[in-house]
């Protein structure tokens, strides 16, 4: 019987360690499909820092670097400056990118570094066990905001896509989600667009993906999808935020 559905070549056979209902697996697949379709597996290097995706190097079949917390954009900068022909992407979570790595991502974006960042925003620290992130929603309970995020004390959640889009340097900045098939198609298109801009050496490209974390949210996967739609998406609105001329 002919195969009608198979793993992308850029994905390995390894079983992922992600929790049920987590969207990392979907996002990995979209990246792998993009790499296959663009025919760039032999010159792609991924970077995944500390976070749930720190083991991502096990799941792809191209070169990979593991990074310290927050520093992936600096590493990608070093790589693209010395090897502009490589296709480089960072794969970062919200604690990583929006907290400890805020400086690195802003400056890399502002320099217009020609790499791609996939920013997985699930409003919580995943790997360390559900602590409050800069993107945690007002009143959202986490292990370090047990009474809910108090915006009087810690401010409002950071909208990274809008924040980066405020920089004057041209860039492709978009926000997507993958919680339903209709969104997945759009997210795939955005990721492919981001890599394409990189291949054209046009600009820095940034795809924020609003994601779920049923485990640390204390929900079933189905509840997590509902909470994402009801609570996250109204605040983190999906769509292109900035497109290069």
């Amino acid at each position: 019987m002919p195969k009608t559905f198979r793993k992308p070549e850029a994905l390995s056979d390894a079983q992922t360690h992600y929790c049920p209902g987590c969207t990392h697996g979907v996002i990995h697949r979209l990246i792998a499909e993009t790499v296959d379709e663009l025919g760039i597996r032999g010159r792609t290097v991924g970077i995944a820092p500390v976070g749930c995706a720190v083991l991502a190097y096990n799941y792809f079949t191209f070169d990979f670097q593991e990074a310290a917390h927050g520093r992936a954009p600096a590493m990608a900068t070093g790589m693209k400056r010395v090897r502009p022909d490589l296709i480089v992407f960072t794969y970062q979570g919200d604690g990583d990118l929006a907290s400890i790595g805020m400086g690195e991502i802003i400056h890399a974006a502002n320099r217009g570094e020609k790499f791609t960042t996939i920013f997985v925003n699930n409003a919580v620290y995943g790997m360390t066990g559900g602590q409050m992130a800069p993107t945690t929603m007002p009143n959202q309970k986490t292990t370090t905001s047990p009474f809910g995020r108090n915006v009087e004390e810690v401010g409002m959640p950071v909208k990274m896509a809008e924040l980066l889009a405020a920089l004057q340097t041209p860039a492709y900045i978009t926000r997507q989600t993958v919680i339903r098939p209709k969104y997945i198609t759009r997210a795939k298109k955005a990721i492919k667009q981001a890599f394409t801009y990189q291949m054209e050496r046009k600009c820095f490209s940034f795809v924020e993906v609003v994601s779920t974390c049923p485990t640390n949210w204390g929900m079933t996967p189905v509840e997590a999808v509902g909470w994402t739609e009801d609570t996250l998406l109204p605040y983190y609105q999906i769509g292109d935020v900035k497109v290069p001329e």
Binding site: G78, R83, H107
Partner: peptide, 20 residues
């Protein structure tokens, strides 16, 4: 030649470049 935004960032620019 690149002037990084901090020594922290610079150390990882070195890391990325050397890793290539």
């Amino acid at each position: 030649f690149l002037q990084g935004e901090s020594e922290v960032a610079v150390s990882y620019m070195l890391f990325g470049a050397a890793a290539c």
